[in-house]
Amino acid sequence: MPLVFIPPSLSQLTDGQREIEVEGGNVAELVQNLEEQFPGIQRALCDDGRLKPGLVVSIGNATSHRGLLQPVSVDDEVHFLPAIGGG
């Protein structure tokens, strides 16, 4: 199953767990399934059906701009990170 890395500020919602294996074929499904286990996490990560502004999902070390629609594979690591810009 994909391994989701929980942002430290959200670990209070996941009983202190920072890495959680979750089923899902894309990020939206991962978040939905996380929500069923840990209520409140969807509201923390998403807004109006999209990832919150300023937040990006990274599959492994590859930042994606597809947001919740980003496909994930069973051996993927999934991170939620701040969006950054360069100069």
């Binding site: 300023g54 937040l55 701040p82």
Partner: peptide, 9 residues
């Protein structure tokens, strides 16, 4: 104050 993925935003 916003946090990355805070519970209440």
């Amino acid at each position: 104050t916003e946090e990355v993925g805070t519970q209440d935003g």
